[in-house]
Protein backbone atom coordinates (compact mmCIF):
# COMPACT_ATOMS: atom_id res chain seq x y z
CA UNK A 1 0.00 0.00 0.00
CA UNK A 2 2.84 2.38 0.94
CA UNK A 3 4.42 1.47 -2.29
CA UNK A 4 1.30 2.28 -4.22
CA UNK A 5 1.03 5.68 -2.53
CA UNK A 6 4.60 6.54 -3.42
CA UNK A 7 4.09 5.43 -7.00
CA UNK A 8 0.88 7.45 -7.16
CA UNK A 9 2.76 10.56 -6.00
CA UNK A 10 5.50 9.73 -8.51
CA UNK A 11 2.83 9.65 -11.19
CA UNK A 12 1.53 13.06 -10.15
CA UNK A 13 5.01 14.62 -10.04
CA UNK A 14 5.90 13.03 -13.35
CA UNK A 15 2.64 14.27 -14.85
CA UNK A 16 2.98 17.84 -13.62
CA UNK A 17 6.52 18.11 -14.94
CA UNK A 18 5.25 16.78 -18.26
CA UNK A 19 2.52 19.40 -18.18
CA UNK A 20 5.01 22.26 -17.79
CA UNK A 21 7.01 20.68 -20.62
CA UNK A 22 4.06 20.20 -22.94
CA UNK A 23 2.03 23.36 -22.18
CA UNK A 24 4.25 25.58 -24.31
CA UNK A 25 4.14 23.15 -27.22
CA UNK A 26 0.36 22.94 -27.01
CA UNK A 27 -0.03 26.70 -26.72
CA UNK A 28 2.16 27.43 -29.75
CA UNK A 29 0.34 24.84 -31.79
CA UNK A 30 -3.10 25.95 -30.67
CA UNK A 31 -2.59 29.68 -31.19
CA UNK A 32 -0.18 29.78 -34.08
CA UNK A 33 -0.85 26.46 -35.78
CA UNK A 34 2.90 25.78 -35.74
CA UNK A 35 4.39 22.39 -34.87
CA UNK A 36 7.42 23.54 -32.93
CA UNK A 37 9.98 20.73 -33.03
CA UNK A 38 12.59 22.93 -31.35
CA UNK A 39 10.64 22.67 -28.10
CA UNK A 40 12.91 19.92 -26.73
CA UNK A 41 16.00 21.98 -27.53
CA UNK A 42 14.56 24.91 -25.55
CA UNK A 43 13.99 22.52 -22.67
CA UNK A 44 17.60 21.35 -22.93
CA UNK A 45 19.08 24.82 -23.08
CA UNK A 46 17.05 25.64 -19.97
CA UNK A 47 18.63 22.70 -18.18
CA UNK A 48 22.15 23.74 -19.15
CA UNK A 49 21.67 27.39 -18.24
CA UNK A 50 20.15 26.20 -14.98
CA UNK A 51 23.22 24.05 -14.36
CA UNK A 52 25.57 26.97 -14.97
CA UNK A 53 23.60 29.43 -12.83
CA UNK A 54 23.27 26.95 -9.96
CA UNK A 55 27.01 26.23 -10.03
CA UNK A 56 28.12 29.82 -10.55
CA UNK A 57 25.73 31.62 -8.20
CA UNK A 58 24.54 28.75 -6.03
CA UNK A 59 20.88 29.61 -6.49
CA UNK A 60 18.29 27.38 -8.09
CA UNK A 61 15.70 30.17 -7.78
CA UNK A 62 17.87 32.56 -9.74
CA UNK A 63 18.15 29.90 -12.45
CA UNK A 64 14.36 29.65 -12.60
CA UNK A 65 14.30 33.38 -13.33
CA UNK A 66 17.30 33.85 -15.60
CA UNK A 67 17.01 30.87 -17.93
CA UNK A 68 13.48 31.65 -19.23
CA UNK A 69 14.49 35.31 -19.62
CA UNK A 70 17.53 34.55 -21.79
CA UNK A 71 15.78 31.93 -23.89
CA UNK A 72 12.67 34.10 -24.14
CA UNK A 73 14.77 36.76 -25.88
CA UNK A 74 16.20 34.07 -28.15
CA UNK A 75 12.64 32.92 -28.85
CA UNK A 76 11.67 36.46 -29.80
CA UNK A 77 14.38 36.65 -32.44
CA UNK A 78 13.59 33.17 -33.76
CA UNK A 79 9.93 34.12 -34.16
CA UNK A 80 10.66 37.55 -35.61
CA UNK A 81 13.32 36.58 -38.14
CA UNK A 82 12.77 32.89 -38.92
CA UNK A 83 9.30 31.64 -38.14
CA UNK A 84 7.24 34.65 -39.19
CA UNK A 85 7.60 33.91 -42.86
CA UNK A 86 6.12 30.46 -42.51
CA UNK A 87 2.75 30.84 -40.84
CA UNK A 88 -0.40 29.22 -42.19
CA UNK A 89 -1.62 25.66 -42.55
CA UNK A 90 -0.04 25.22 -45.99
CA UNK A 91 3.43 25.69 -44.54
CA UNK A 92 3.43 22.77 -42.07
CA UNK A 93 6.22 20.90 -43.81
CA UNK A 94 8.38 24.03 -43.97
CA UNK A 95 7.69 24.70 -40.28
CA UNK A 96 8.71 21.17 -39.39
CA UNK A 97 11.95 21.48 -41.33
CA UNK A 98 12.68 24.92 -39.93
CA UNK A 99 12.01 24.11 -36.28
CA UNK A 100 13.82 20.78 -36.56
CA UNK A 101 16.79 22.64 -38.01
CA UNK A 102 16.65 25.09 -35.12
CA UNK A 103 16.64 22.13 -32.71
CA UNK A 104 19.73 20.60 -34.30
CA UNK A 105 21.55 23.94 -34.39
CA UNK A 106 20.73 24.71 -30.75
CA UNK A 107 21.90 21.25 -29.71
CA UNK A 108 25.17 21.81 -31.58
CA UNK A 109 25.64 25.15 -29.82
CA UNK A 110 25.01 23.45 -26.47
CA UNK A 111 27.56 20.75 -27.32
CA UNK A 112 30.04 23.47 -28.22
CA UNK A 113 29.48 25.50 -25.04
CA UNK A 114 28.95 22.78 -22.42
CA UNK A 115 30.50 19.67 -23.99
CA UNK A 116 28.88 16.26 -23.90
CA UNK A 117 29.51 15.13 -20.33
CA UNK A 118 26.41 14.16 -18.37
CA UNK A 119 25.63 16.72 -15.71
CA UNK A 120 23.44 16.82 -12.65
CA UNK A 121 21.72 19.68 -10.84
CA UNK A 122 20.84 19.38 -7.17
CA UNK A 123 17.40 20.61 -6.12
CA UNK A 124 17.50 23.68 -3.85
CA UNK A 125 18.75 22.73 -0.39
CA UNK A 126 15.52 23.73 1.31
CA UNK A 127 13.61 21.21 -0.82
CA UNK A 128 16.10 18.33 -0.69
CA UNK A 129 14.57 16.28 2.04
CA UNK A 130 11.84 13.78 2.65
CA UNK A 131 8.52 14.88 4.10
CA UNK A 132 5.73 12.72 5.52
CA UNK A 133 2.70 12.79 3.27
CA UNK A 134 -0.26 10.39 2.99
CA UNK A 135 1.58 8.11 5.37
CA UNK A 136 4.78 7.80 3.35
CA UNK A 137 8.10 9.65 3.18
CA UNK A 138 8.29 11.58 -0.06
CA UNK A 139 10.96 13.92 -1.53
CA UNK A 140 9.84 17.51 -1.00
CA UNK A 141 11.20 18.67 -4.37
CA UNK A 142 8.97 16.26 -6.26
CA UNK A 143 6.01 17.22 -4.10
CA UNK A 144 6.67 20.91 -4.84
CA UNK A 145 6.57 20.07 -8.54
CA UNK A 146 3.06 18.72 -8.12
CA UNK A 147 1.93 21.95 -6.42
CA UNK A 148 3.69 24.11 -8.97
CA UNK A 149 2.15 22.25 -11.90
CA UNK A 150 -1.35 22.62 -10.53
CA UNK A 151 -0.84 26.34 -9.81
CA UNK A 152 0.58 26.94 -13.26
CA UNK A 153 -2.35 25.17 -14.88
CA UNK A 154 -4.83 27.22 -12.83
CA UNK A 155 -3.02 30.48 -13.58
CA UNK A 156 -2.89 29.78 -17.29
CA UNK A 157 -6.54 28.82 -17.34
CA UNK A 158 -7.51 32.06 -15.58
CA UNK A 159 -5.50 34.20 -18.00
CA UNK A 160 -6.98 32.27 -20.88
CA UNK A 161 -10.61 32.52 -19.79
CA UNK A 162 -10.80 35.65 -17.70
CA UNK A 163 -8.48 38.31 -19.12
CA UNK A 164 -8.45 40.60 -22.11
CA UNK A 165 -5.16 39.13 -23.35
CA UNK A 166 -6.68 35.66 -23.18
CA UNK A 167 -9.69 36.86 -25.13
CA UNK A 168 -7.51 38.41 -27.84
CA UNK A 169 -5.42 35.28 -28.20
CA UNK A 170 -8.52 33.08 -28.33
CA UNK A 171 -10.04 35.35 -30.95
CA UNK A 172 -6.80 35.12 -32.92
CA UNK A 173 -7.15 31.36 -33.08
CA UNK A 174 -10.68 31.55 -34.48
CA UNK A 175 -10.08 34.28 -37.03
CA UNK A 176 -6.77 36.08 -37.18
CA UNK A 177 -7.83 38.36 -40.04
CA UNK A 178 -10.89 39.60 -38.21
CA UNK A 179 -8.84 40.31 -35.10
CA UNK A 180 -6.34 42.40 -37.00
CA UNK A 181 -9.28 44.12 -38.69
CA UNK A 182 -10.36 45.21 -35.23
CA UNK A 183 -7.11 47.08 -34.85
CA UNK A 184 -5.19 44.49 -32.88
CA UNK A 185 -1.63 43.74 -33.93
CA UNK A 186 -1.96 39.99 -34.42
CA UNK A 187 1.74 39.62 -35.27
CA UNK A 188 2.61 40.94 -31.85
CA UNK A 189 0.17 38.49 -30.28
CA UNK A 190 1.82 35.60 -32.10
CA UNK A 191 5.26 36.79 -31.06
CA UNK A 192 4.07 36.99 -27.47
CA UNK A 193 2.64 33.47 -27.57
CA UNK A 194 5.82 32.03 -29.07
CA UNK A 195 8.05 33.76 -26.54
CA UNK A 196 5.82 32.58 -23.69
CA UNK A 197 5.89 29.03 -25.08
CA UNK A 198 9.68 28.95 -25.28
CA UNK A 199 9.91 30.41 -21.78
CA UNK A 200 7.70 27.60 -20.49
CA UNK A 201 9.90 25.02 -22.20
CA UNK A 202 12.98 26.61 -20.66
CA UNK A 203 11.36 26.78 -17.24
CA UNK A 204 10.55 23.08 -17.47
CA UNK A 205 14.19 22.49 -18.40
CA UNK A 206 15.34 24.09 -15.15
CA UNK A 207 12.65 22.31 -13.11
CA UNK A 208 13.35 18.99 -14.81
CA UNK A 209 17.14 19.06 -14.44
CA UNK A 210 17.17 17.58 -10.89
CA UNK A 211 14.79 14.82 -12.07
CA UNK A 212 16.05 13.90 -15.54
CA UNK A 213 19.66 15.06 -15.06
CA UNK A 214 21.26 16.59 -18.15
CA UNK A 215 22.63 14.89 -21.23
CA UNK A 216 23.06 16.17 -24.73
CA UNK A 217 20.59 13.71 -26.27
CA UNK A 218 17.80 14.49 -23.83
CA UNK A 219 16.14 17.20 -25.94
CA UNK A 220 14.60 14.82 -28.44
CA UNK A 221 13.43 12.45 -25.71
CA UNK A 222 11.62 15.38 -24.07
CA UNK A 223 10.19 16.48 -27.41
CA UNK A 224 8.69 13.04 -28.01
CA UNK A 225 7.14 12.94 -24.53
CA UNK A 226 5.70 16.43 -24.99
CA UNK A 227 4.26 15.53 -28.40
CA UNK A 228 2.65 12.40 -26.98
CA UNK A 229 1.07 14.47 -24.19
CA UNK A 230 -0.22 17.08 -26.62
CA UNK A 231 -1.57 14.48 -29.04
CA UNK A 232 -3.43 12.65 -26.28
CA UNK A 233 -4.84 15.83 -24.77
CA UNK A 234 -5.85 17.23 -28.12
CA UNK A 235 -3.72 19.58 -30.17
CA UNK A 236 -4.03 23.15 -29.03
CA UNK A 237 -5.96 22.54 -25.83
CA UNK A 238 -4.42 23.58 -22.51
CA UNK A 239 -6.95 21.53 -20.56
CA UNK A 240 -6.03 18.63 -22.81
CA UNK A 241 -2.33 19.12 -22.14
CA UNK A 242 -3.05 19.01 -18.41
CA UNK A 243 -5.00 15.76 -18.48
CA UNK A 244 -2.79 14.27 -21.16
CA UNK A 245 0.26 14.96 -18.98
CA UNK A 246 -1.42 13.34 -15.97
CA UNK A 247 -2.39 10.25 -17.95
CA UNK A 248 1.08 9.83 -19.45
CA UNK A 249 2.71 10.59 -16.09
CA UNK A 250 0.68 7.82 -14.47
CA UNK A 251 1.08 5.36 -17.35
CA UNK A 252 4.83 5.97 -17.43
CA UNK A 253 5.15 5.61 -13.66
CA UNK A 254 3.07 2.48 -13.19
CA UNK A 255 4.51 1.00 -16.36
CA UNK A 256 8.03 1.37 -14.98
CA UNK A 257 6.98 0.12 -11.56
CA UNK A 258 5.31 -3.09 -12.71
CA UNK A 259 6.69 -3.96 -16.12
CA UNK A 260 9.73 -1.77 -16.78
CA UNK A 261 10.55 -3.71 -19.96
CA UNK A 262 7.35 -2.47 -21.55
CA UNK A 263 7.14 1.00 -20.03
CA UNK A 264 8.05 2.70 -23.31
CA UNK A 265 5.52 0.63 -25.18
CA UNK A 266 2.80 1.51 -22.66
CA UNK A 267 3.14 5.25 -23.31
CA UNK A 268 2.54 4.75 -27.00
CA UNK A 269 -0.16 2.14 -26.45
CA UNK A 270 -2.10 4.67 -24.35
CA UNK A 271 -1.69 7.22 -27.11
CA UNK A 272 -2.92 4.75 -29.74
CA UNK A 273 -5.99 3.83 -27.68
CA UNK A 274 -6.93 7.47 -27.08
CA UNK A 275 -6.55 8.25 -30.77
CA UNK A 276 -8.67 5.24 -31.76
CA UNK A 277 -11.47 6.30 -29.45
CA UNK A 278 -11.20 10.02 -30.06
CA UNK A 279 -9.04 10.90 -33.05
CA UNK A 280 -8.81 14.59 -32.14
CA UNK A 281 -7.49 13.80 -28.66
CA UNK A 282 -9.32 14.09 -25.35
CA UNK A 283 -10.01 17.82 -25.53
CA UNK A 284 -9.04 18.48 -29.12
CA UNK A 285 -10.94 20.93 -31.26
CA UNK A 286 -12.57 19.41 -34.31
CA UNK A 287 -10.51 20.10 -37.36
CA UNK A 288 -7.23 19.75 -35.51
CA UNK A 289 -7.09 16.00 -36.06
Amino acid sequence: MDNFTIQFLNGLANGMLLFVMAAGLSLIFGQMNVVNLSHGAFYLIGSYIGYTVVNRFGSFWLALLIAPLIVGILGYFIERYLLRGFYGGKNHLKQVLLTFGIAISLTAVIEWVWGTLNLAVQPPAILSRLIPILGVQYPLYRFSLIIFGVLLALGMWLIWERTRIGAIVRAGVSDAKMVSGLGINIERVFAGVFVFGTMLATLSGVLGAPIYSISIDLGFEILILAIVVVVIGGLGSLTGAFWGALIIGMANTFGKAFIPEFSLFIIFAVMAIVLLVKPSGLFGLEGFE
Binding site: N10, L17, R142, A257, P260, E261
Partner: peptide, 21 residues
Protein backbone atom coordinates in the same frame (compact mmCIF):
# COMPACT_ATOMS: atom_id res chain seq x y z
CA UNK B 1 15.85 -8.32 -11.45
CA UNK B 2 15.01 -4.88 -12.78
CA UNK B 3 15.56 -3.97 -16.42
CA UNK B 4 15.97 -0.22 -16.74
CA UNK B 5 14.27 1.05 -19.91
CA UNK B 6 16.63 2.56 -22.43
CA UNK B 7 16.08 5.42 -22.89
CA UNK B 8 14.40 5.76 -19.53
CA UNK B 9 11.94 8.37 -20.91
CA UNK B 10 10.82 10.37 -17.94
CA UNK B 11 11.31 10.12 -14.23
CA UNK B 12 13.30 7.07 -13.02
CA UNK B 13 11.71 7.37 -9.56
CA UNK B 14 9.26 4.46 -10.06
CA UNK B 15 12.23 2.10 -10.46
CA UNK B 16 13.72 3.38 -7.20
CA UNK B 17 10.49 2.73 -5.30
CA UNK B 18 10.36 -0.73 -6.86
CA UNK B 19 13.93 -1.60 -5.76
CA UNK B 20 13.31 -0.27 -2.24
CA UNK B 21 10.38 -2.66 -1.88
Amino acid sequence: EVLVPFPVMGDPAPLITDIAS
